[in-house]
Each structure stands twice: as C-alpha cells, then as structure tokens.
Write a protein that binds this DNA or RNA. Structure first.
Lengths: 257, 257
DNA sequence: ATAAACTGTTTATGCTATAAACAGTTTATG
DNA sequence: CATAAACTGTTTATAGCATAAACAGTTTAT
C-alpha cells in the first residue's frame, strides 16, 4: 500500500485506489499482488458463491497468499467491497450508434436504455445488490453511470435538483426492481408461491386482511403474466410521472405538492 | 423454545413466534425470558446504538442472562432480526377519523397518508433500513401495512398485478427515499457537502463528466431548498405516473411500453 | 554502505454465531 | 408417589471473522 501523501489517507475507502491517486512505489520489493488482482479474484468469487463467501481469508487463499498480505494493498475489507462494486458496474459504454441512426434519442428512450443497461450489470453481478448503498457516488464508474443518466435527462425542463432527485430515484427504482425480480427467480418454484399463499390463507384473518387475501386469490396473479417485468412497469410509471410534471410546468400551471 | 409440532419447525424464521403458533409449554421450569422481552431489549439497543451493536452476546448482557439463554427462545439471530423488524414497524393504526370527516379519502390522499405513516416508523427505528428486505412479507405487521396500502389502492382501476406491483414499488420508494434523507441528515454538515463537491471537481474530467459537474455547480443545489423532501418529490412523481396509466386506461386508449 | 520504504508472513487478539453437554425445575404419567 | 419427559438456563467449546503488531526479506535512494 504505497501511500506517502498523507492527504490520501483520509479519503473515503477505495477512492484513492480507484482513481489511481496512489503513486507507484520505487523502493522495496516489487509487489506480486495488486489491488486489481485482488479485486478480480474477489469478484470471481462473489459471482460464483455470493458476497457472503467473500472473506479476506478466502480471497487470499484463492490468490495463493496469506490473509494479511491483502492488507498491504487494501486498507480494509470495506475498501475491497467498494472497489469490487465499482469494478463490477464497469464503464457504461452506452455507445450511441453513431452512423445511420444519428438522431439523438428522446429523454425517455435514453433513460430506458440506461435502465436496461444497468439492470444488465446487476444481473451479471447480483451480489452488488447485497452491498448497501452508503451515500452519494464517489467512485469512477458509479459517477460515469450517473453522468450517463444525467445526460439522458439533460434535454428535459427539470430543474437541477429535480434532475438529481429523479436520477437518484431512477437508480433506486432499477435497483429495487431488479432485486425483486432476482429474489423471485431464486426462490420461486410454482410450489414456493403456492406455499406462500397457502400460508397466508392459514394465518390471516379474512376480515382484517381482505385486500391481501383478495389479491392473492386473484386468478390473474397466479398466471404471473407479467412476471419478470416489474422493472418496466415501475419505470414507465415513474417516467409518466416525470412527464406529467414537465407538462404541468410547460403549460405554465403549477400545483402544490 | 417450546415447539412440539414439527410442522412449525420449518416455517420461515420468526413466523411461528410472530403469529403465536408455538403453544406455551406445560412441563419444565417456568421461563424468565421470552421472545417478547428479548425483542424489546434488542430494539432498545438498536435504537440507541444501531443494528451493528445488536449481537446475541450484547442483547443477553443487557438482559442479564448468558448468551446461550437466548437460543432457548429464538432459533437464530436471523429470527431475532425478523421479529425486531416486525415489532418495530408495529401496527399501522391509520385510524380513519370516524366522526365529522366521514368521507373516504381518494386513493392519492390515502396512499400519501400511508407513505408518511411508514416513513415515520423508519424515522423512529432507522436501523430497519439496515436490515435487507428478503422476500414477500410474511410477518403480521408487515402484512398489515401491505393491507393498508392495498386498501388505499382498492378504489383505483388497476388490475391485481398492477396493484401488487405498485404497492411493492411504493414501499420501495418510501424506503429508499427515507434512507437517502437519513443518510444525508447523518453525514451532511455544510462542510461535508462542499468537501464532496470539491473532491468531484478535483477528480472528474470536465469533459467526460460535464453533466455531473454542471449539476453540482448549480447554485440552486447549494441552497438545498427542497432538502428533506426527496420522499414527497418521488412519491408525487410515482402517483402521477399511476394516474396517467389509469387515465389512459379510462379513455380506452392503450399504448405499448 | 547504510537507511528508508516496501512486501509478504507469522503470530496473536477479540469479536461473532452457535453446537453440545450438563444441572436444575416443573409437570404429566406410570 | 415415583419416574420420565420436557423445559430453562449455564458452561464449555469450536470455527469463523477482521485486523493489529512484530518480523524477515528485498529493493532503491542517499
């Protein structure tokens, strides 16, 4: 962990490394390990066995080093996790098709595209969803994703704080929808769903829980016609909501919250 | 942990206890401890020192018993957490004012009321937000909250699966908005925000991150005029979106997602 | 040549959840 | 009534966790 500049020491975990602020060391034995190698192996492990399997000891073992060797390159496990998540998000190369389709997409299309793209990353590395969001993004790829979303919203008439709020909510929406879809995909055999509903009917008071029971008795639900499209549904609702705000704004009208 | 009925053993953690399915034991020494007492002390601890402070050893110590004594009443720490969360949500006594204001509120008002009420519970027990949502609700109070939300949505023209999707998304929306607001309230001195923005300007390439930098330079943001109202903003957007769907539905028109 | 800076290992600490065995207590059953 | 079953709480023990501290070896700047 080469770090002479003391100002780097008190940056949030992962920031210094993710941004390449730690200058390479000149003295000392040449390192066999590196943050990048550690992160790569840790991500492979998380992909295969989930985030719970990622311990410092296990990652080190997979690398063929001792546990403590990792601490020469990472300040803490927290730092490892931050860097794993950022690397797993990766660069959002939403390369606009330059030739042929030269028209800028409207903000809804661009936002939808963004949502599907980040959903894909969640599906490739579902364990990202097990790492709780701490605060505003400070790592390179997360900021690139935010940038892309803000570019999608740029043509709108939203104010700055409306844009920021919307962007954060859209990110949350994709995150929680995808989490729900993956949870369901993991646990829901047809049996499990029926077992759940059966349990509800056993436990719930039909009077006190009439809506819940009514809903789960609805034949439409059993068909699960739109299963796996919770994201689209939620997204379109939210986009409609943004559009309604802009329409009100555009027509000069204004209404209290 | 009195449990003779073996069918109770393989219910999800917390379900048997939360629903009072474990019949009281007749033989044996009378218990000094009980799930309720343990949960109560654990919640007090979490309220004061956060969820991270809640270990079996610490809870037992606060109770004046040995660590292992807890396992006579709870099958695992997971079970304790499930029961803590359900107890912390509590009963949603959204008592409709019976006299005088006898008019049923419209669905938007009712939903808004629900959202503010559950937000209040999050604020009283912020550590609920640190416990990840696992699957569909199966504990009594969580189901009561779901019931109340479904009652708010009952008068709408949404289909069953649209209602369920909307309810789950509204729950997610309140959860993540409140989490954001609390995170900000915890960490954001004016200094911290400026430090964050300063860091961004140091690290980001003005070309590659023009929208992010532009946004954070916007004087409107610095004022933080709508700080602490992320929930209302997101909620009204989503409600508008639901309304737009119903309007389209009502006018017979239909559009592809 | 020497000292500084770095890498990786060994050893150790204190925390975590929880399994297993045991002692004591109450009650249902012979 | 005696005994066995069922329960409660304690003691002891284990395996895992993150990470601090000391140490040995290596490379390079001085």
């Amino acid at each position: 962990m080469p770090q002479k500049d003391p100002s780097l020491t008190d940056l949030p975990p992962g920031v210094a490394i993710a941004w390449g602020l730690d200058r390479p060391s000149t003295r000392g034995a040449k390192a066999e390990l590196s943050p990048a190698r550690i992160i790569e192996v840790a991500i492979r492990l998380a992909d295969k066995e989930g985030l719970a399997a990622v311990s410092m000891a296990r990652v080190a073992k997979d690398l063929g080093f001792t546990t403590m060797s990792l601490y020469r390159h990472l300040r803490s496990k927290e730092e490892l996790l931050v860097l794993m998540v950022d690397a797993a998000f990766g660069d959002p190369d939403l390369a606009a098709p330059e030739v042929g389709d030269r028209a800028e997409p409207d903000w809804r299309t661009a936002t939808r595209r963004w949502a599907k793209a980040i959903e894909q990353r969640y599906r490739e590395h579902p364990w990202i969803l097990d790492y709780p969001v701490t605060g505003p993004p400070a790592s390179p790829n997360e900021l690139l994703w935010l940038e892309q979303l803000l570019r999608a919203l740029a043509p709108t008439t939203l104010t700055a704080s409306e844009k920021l709020n919307s962007a954060l909510m859209l990110a949350n929406l994709v995150r929680s929808s995808t989490r729900m879809e993956l949870d369901v995909a993991d646990n829901d055999t047809p049996d499990a769903f029926e077992a759940y509903v059966g349990l509800l009917f056993q436990l719930l008071d039909p009077e006190q829980h009439r809506e819940v029971l009514g809903l789960f008795s609805d034949p439409e639900l059993a068909v699960m016609e739109d299963a796996g499209d919770e994201l689209s549904f939620a997204l379109e609702r939210y986009l409609d909501g943004m559009e309604a705000l802009m329409a009100r704004r555009g027509s000069g009208a204004d209404q209290p919250g």
